[in-house]
Computed example of a mutant assay.
Amino acid sequence: MFGTQSKRDLTLELQAQFPILRPSIHARRANLTVKFQDLYGFTVEGNVDDVNVLNEVREKVRQQGRVWWALEASKGANWYLQPQISSLSEGIVLKSSLKLAALANSITLKRLIRKGIPPVLRPKVWFSLSGAAKKKSTVPESYYNDLTKAVDGKVTPATRQIDHDLPRTFPGHPWLDTPEGHAALRRVLVGYSFRDSDVGYCQGLNYVAALLLLVMKTEEDAFWMLAVLLENVLVNDCYTNNLSGCHVEQRVFKDLLAKKCPRIAAHLEALEFDVSPRCDRVVLVPLF
C-alpha cells in the first residue's frame, strides 16, 4: 500500500512531523504536587515550580532581613523609635519619633517596610508603627488581664456568635484549631466585644484576630492590634450593624477605579458587575 516505504520509515516520518509525543520534563514537574506548612502553620499546596518561586521569595526576604539586622546592630534594637537629636542655636532639641506621622516620614523606614519586614521583627515593628503601643500606653498595665477576667463567663449575643465561629476559623490549623487556640482567640474577641459595644462582634473579625494572633504571638498584643485597626485605621463603622464604613470604602474604590483604570471600570460596567455591592453584616470581611 505504501510502496517501498517500510512501516519503520513511516513511523519515523510521522514522529518527525509530531515531535512532541510525550510530556516534557517541565510539564511532568509541573504536575508534581507538594504540600508543606508555611511560617504561620498554614498548609500550602503547589507544584515544583511554585516551590521554586517561593524559595526565591524567601531568599529575597532573608537578604532584606540582613539589612534590618545590620541597622539593629549599628543603631540599636529600636533604632526606628529613637528620638532624633538636632543641634540648634538655642541648644539641643529632642524630636520625638514616637508619633506615627514622624515615623511615616522616615525615608529609610518606608523603603525597608515596602521591601518587606523580616518575619521575626514583624510583631515588634507592627505593634510600634500601627499605633497599638501608644494606645496600650494610655491604660493601666493590667487592662487586658482585668478585662478578660471581668467578662469571663458572661453570655451575650456576641459571645454566642463567637463560640459558633471558633471551630470554623481556619479549620485544620495546627494551633488555631485546638482547644488552646480556640481559647486564646475567644478571649481576644470576647474582650473586644465588651470594649466596644457598638461593634460587639461581627463575623469576619475572627479571621482578622486569628491572623493577628499568629503574627503577634501574644494575646494582649493581638488584642491591641485589633483595637487600633478598628478604632484608628479602618473607616469608622466598618464593623457596626449597618456596615456604613464598608459602604464608604466600596464607593471610594469604585470611584477610584473609574478615575485610575477607566477601561477596566467600563468593562465591568458593561458586564453589569458592581464593584460596590450591597453587603451583609454576617459575611463581609473588609480587606486592609
Rank of each mutant, 00 (worst) to 15 (best):
Gln64Lys: 07
Val155Arg: 12
Ile107Trp: 03
Thr159Leu: 04
Val67Asp: 00
Leu284Ile: 15
Arg160Phe: 05
Phe36Asp: 12
Ile107Leu: 11
Ile113Tyr: 01
His247Met: 09
Arg186Tyr: 10
Leu21Arg: 12
Asp152Leu: 12
Ser197Arg: 14
Val228Glu: 01
Pro119Ala: 12
Asn206Val: 12
Asn105Cys: 12
Leu147Tyr: 08
Gln250Lys: 07
His267Ala: 14
Gln5Cys: 05
Thr43Cys: 05
Met225Pro: 06
Cys261Val: 04
Arg114Tyr: 01
Pro157Cys: 01
Tyr144Ala: 01
Arg122Asp: 00
Pro19Thr: 11
Asp9Glu: 15
Gln250Tyr: 07
Lys260Ser: 07
Val53Lys: 10
Val190Gln: 05
Ala258Pro: 04
Trp175Leu: 11
Leu226Trp: 06
Ala209Arg: 04
Asn78Pro: 01
Val248Ala: 13
Val34Thr: 15
Phe18Arg: 12
Ile113Lys: 02
Asn47Phe: 08
Val139Cys: 08
Leu12Gly: 04
Thr11Pro: 00
Leu103Tyr: 03
Gly245Lys: 08
Val151Ala: 01
Ser244Pro: 02
Ala258Ile: 02
Phe194Thr: 06
Leu121Gln: 09
Lys110Pro: 00
Gln84Ser: 12
Ile107Gln: 10
Ala70Asp: 08
Ser86Thr: 13
Asp165Cys: 07
Arg66Pro: 01
Ala184Asn: 13
Val285Gly: 03
Arg168Trp: 09
Gly46Cys: 08
Asn47Gln: 09
Pro119Gln: 05
Ser142Ala: 15
Gly3Tyr: 06
Tyr201Pro: 05
Lys134Phe: 11
Pro179Phe: 10
Glu90Leu: 14
Asp163Pro: 01
Gly76Trp: 13
Phe170Met: 13
Leu121Glu: 03
Tyr144Leu: 01
Ala101Pro: 02
Asp152Ala: 15
Phe223Tyr: 15
Val120Asp: 07
Ala77Met: 11
Val139Glu: 11
Leu94Trp: 07
Ile117Val: 15
Arg62Gly: 02
Lys115Arg: 14
Gly153Arg: 09
Gly41Cys: 06
Lys110Leu: 09
Gly200Ala: 03
Gly116Thr: 10
Glu56Arg: 10
Tyr239Asn: 10
Asn47Thr: 08
Ile113Asn: 00
Glu72Tyr: 12
Leu94Asn: 05
Gly191Tyr: 06
Leu268Asp: 03
Pro179Met: 04
Ala258Glu: 03
Ser6Cys: 05
Asn105Met: 13
Gln64Met: 09
Leu121Gly: 04
